[in-house]
């Protein structure tokens, strides 16, 4: 089998559809992701419908594109993000994730060694979650047109009959639960970018949530809604829940779990951990009487060690998210305008 021995960097040839591209796909992607469906190398993956229907009554389908700087960071890389992020979007709908597609847009000049590390991380993440990457695409864009690498992954999963997780099910009195500490990924990335010259032991919280979700669903049927917190942090999810349910949400500042290092980054820059990105945390809404037991169960799972109740659903007004401060007063928890920029005041 031809190897990439001679190529230390990706060139435009690797995306041109000829022999170089063939070599790249076979020796890097198929070699790493290797499964029966992928190895047939047809233009499309074909899945047995009967086998899917046996696992549930609805197909869950999601897509996400991943652009991040830096491509590699403590706790992961764009590859592990691309797999776990899309799997988590399926998992929080209660779906069993089964298959992923994967499209690469590579910038000319990218080091093959770096691409290999990223692909290997994807293989690992997929293997750990029990999913197969069954179809994909490869493009190469000229130098300067691509920020290193962009990845799109789309995911397919099956939702068991009768399971309906939806924000519209949230009722006043329900509790809001988070699976762990806020803002780890965002703070780790800020640090990794180097502009602010901060150092700590922080790593991204990038991980698959499927196992935790199944563990939670086995614990109680009273979970109303669930989402994974990504860009925009837990604050963004709370706003989504409030808007979609037509309810208001109150969080308690003194109950928010935050790692000391994330807190340090926030205090230094004048930012709020609720607005920092996560990549391995979920927010769930559960009936009040089941909340304590659910949190205890989550803490038994490796992805939920720091789980806790952080808030409650209120009657209204629709869409409002507010916070009870340490001082006991109430104020709005708003969404930031755009990029989080450090304050000097």
């Amino acid at each position: 089998m031809p190897t990439l021995l001679d190529d230390s960097h990706i060139t435009l040839s690797h995306g041109a559809g000829g022999r170089a591209m063939r070599t790249l796909i076979e020796t890097l992607f198929i070699e790493a992701f290797g499964n029966d469906e992928l190895c047939r190398t047809e233009d499309q993956a074909r899945l047995d419908l009967a086998r899917l229907s046996a696992q549930g009554d609805r197909l869950a389908f999601t897509t996400d594109s991943y652009v991040i700087d830096p491509l590699e960071f403590p706790g992961g890389n764009i590859g592990s993000l691309a797999v776990n992020g899309t799997l988590n979007d399926l998992a929080v709908g209660g779906a069993r994730p089964l298959y992923l597609s994967c499209a690469f847009i590579i910038e000319e000049g990218m080091a093959v060694s770096q691409l290999r590390r990223i692909v290997e991380a994807m293989r690992e993440a997929a293997r750990a979650a029990g999913v197969s990457i069954i179809t994909g695409d490869t493009k190469v864009v000229p130098r300067g047109k691509g920020d290193g690498l962009f990845i799109n992954t789309s995911g397919l999963g099956v939702v068991p009959q009768g399971l309906e997780l939806a924000a519209s099910r949230c009722e006043p009195g329900d509790r809001v639960v988070v699976s762990g500490t806020l803002g780890d990924h965002g703070a780790a990335i800020l640090q990794a970018r180097g502009e602010l010259a901060l150092a700590s032991n922080l790593t991204s919280d990038c991980r698959s949530l499927h196992g935790l979700v199944q563990h939670m669903l086995a614990q109680t049927t009273e979970i109303k809604a669930m989402r994974d917190a990504t860009r925009g942090g837990v604050a963004a999810i709370l706003h989504e829940f409030a808007a979609a349910s037509g309810r208001a949400i109150r969080v308690f500042e003194d109950s928010l779990p935050v790692k000391p290092e994330v807190r340090g980054v926030c205090e230094i820059l004048g930012l709020d951990a609720l607005h920092f990105a996560n990549e391995g945390k979920l927010v769930a809404v559960v009936a009040q009487e089941r909340a304590d037991a659910l949190v205890r169960a989550m803490r038994q799972h490796e992805a939920g060690r720091d789980a806790c109740i952080i808030g409650e659903i209120l009657e209204g007004p629709a869409g409002r998210v507010q916070i009870r401060t340490l001082m006991g007063s109430e104020r709005l928890l708003d969404l930031p305008e755009g990029e989080l920029l450090p304050r000097i005041c």
Binding site: M327, G328, S329
Partner: peptide, 29 residues
Amino acid sequence: GGHTHSIFRYGLEALLPEGLELIHGPGCP
């Protein structure tokens, strides 16, 4: 600006008695 931010972030004004007003002067460069 730091005082303005702290006062709003902790909702201090709502906790103060009636008749006490906080004015946010030109402190944000």
